[in-house]
Design a protein around this nucleic acid. Structure first.
Lengths: 225, 225
DNA sequence: AGAACAACTATACCTACGTTTGTAATGCGC
DNA sequence: GCGCATTACAAACGTAGGTATAGTTGTTCT
């Protein structure tokens, strides 16, 4: 029951989101088809499902995307699905649509991080605006995640001792203090520190410190900030 | 039309929010009174108003607080008030309550950063939970703001030249590069750099770098991170 | 005019950082 | 057993960072 778009795109206001995929989970066939057409008409790729289960079973491609989700669904409800996705660490931005919603539902959805919550009938442009906002959010999140992942993989190329030295460097200790802390000679710390700089591709200490910040690396801080 | 509580507090589940003020903007007198009683009964201080204008005209004390706001109000509506507060850079967390709300209202409120959006009738505990969440959010925001403000005031004790040196140190340049950049002798940079460390109360370079991060100080970065 | 302060530099000296070269023990996988 | 990564240290050397002392110039306040 998937309607995969042909990967054509026709520009228009969705240009910034070109290559983005819009997932649709909507049990009503005619609604699903009209949503699909709407998104394809502005050059977005579409993958549509009839239920939450179907989407969970399919393998989600790792590209910028968002999810247009009906609240009322057979099986798992839209709100339950949102919770499930969060539990599974799937952070796709969600736009809810519904014909029979109420305020507590919309509040729960928004508290859960939804981008928008639209009630039928809505104007096409409203939904498109929400989708553009959602894909933009996803793009930014992916960018940030990528940065952290890159740093993390660099960090993991460090030997345990090198990682330990990096942590203590990040807290602002001098080489001799690090040596004392780890029961090493100062010269050894210097050498490991050099390895850290090379392997982390840090051009300066300032650079390295910022890396530890984005990695969330800090030991017992003898600093205040 | 203000009902100020006596500063008694009776513990209970609101203990973590002791000393917090709950602002109420609600035109219905009996509702306002019952809300006031509810919050006072758990030891919260209360300041109540009958309209948005009244609250805007009063001087808001600089303490942890939140706002319980009726959506339907004479004059400025609750949602408009939320927008106004944001424009005025007043970041008090808002809990909306309403008897005649709809989904678009609640979505707009939540998009605007509201903590919750409750429909009458609601259980007392629901509102209290929301108030506790809201004051906690305010406490954290204030804490973060305070940190930045402290650093900013330290930074402003630096002479223009010292500030410039600090910026370039933060980007990871060596003293001689900084000197070239600013048209100074290296020795001068060293001395200003020493001043920077003392005046900013930084115990190490790592410490100083982190300060520049929370201050958002960076020049043209010849670094990547 | 004189005091006070900022910006700026020089000489001298010391400490901290970093790299190179070389040595050596340990443990792991094939 | 052989190769390899890891851990560890030493000697030697060069660079970078940091401070103290002392002095110049210019502005501003009184």
């Amino acid at each position: 029951m998937n309607e995969r778009s042909n990967p054509q795109r026709e520009g228009s206001s969705a240009e910034a989101s070109a290559n983005a995929i819009v997932f649709i989970v909507e049990d009503d066939v005619s609604m699903r088809r009209s949503l699909t057409n709407l998104f394809q008409s502005v050059g977005l790729d579409v993958v549509a499902f009839g239920s939450a289960r179907e989407m969970l079973q399919s393998k989600l491609p790792d590209v910028v995307s968002c999810l247009v989700l009906d609240v009322r669904l057979p099986g798992l409800s839209g709100l339950e699905f949102q919770t499930e996705l969060a539990k599974s660490n799937i952070h796709i931005p969600i736009i809810f649509i519904t014909g029979h919603g109420d305020i507590p539902m919309s509040v729960r959805a928004m508290k859960g991080g939804a981008v928008d919550f639209l009630t039928k009938p809505f104007r096409d442009q409203e939904l498109l605006d929400a989708v553009i906002a959602a894909t933009e959010r996803d793009r930014k999140r992916r960018e940030a995640d990528q940065t952290v992942a890159n740093l993390k993989s660099l960090f993991e190329t460090l030997s345990p001792r090198e990682q330990a030295v990096m942590k203590l460097v990040a807290t602002g200790l001098m080489n001799k203090q690090i040596a004392a802390e780890l029961g090493l000679a100062e010269i050894t710390v210097k050498i490991y520190r050099g390895h850290v700089m090379k392997k982390m591709r840090a051009r300066s200490l300032a650079d390295l410190i910022r890396m530890t910040e984005t990695l969330g690396i800090r030991s017992n801080r003898p600093e205040q900030t």
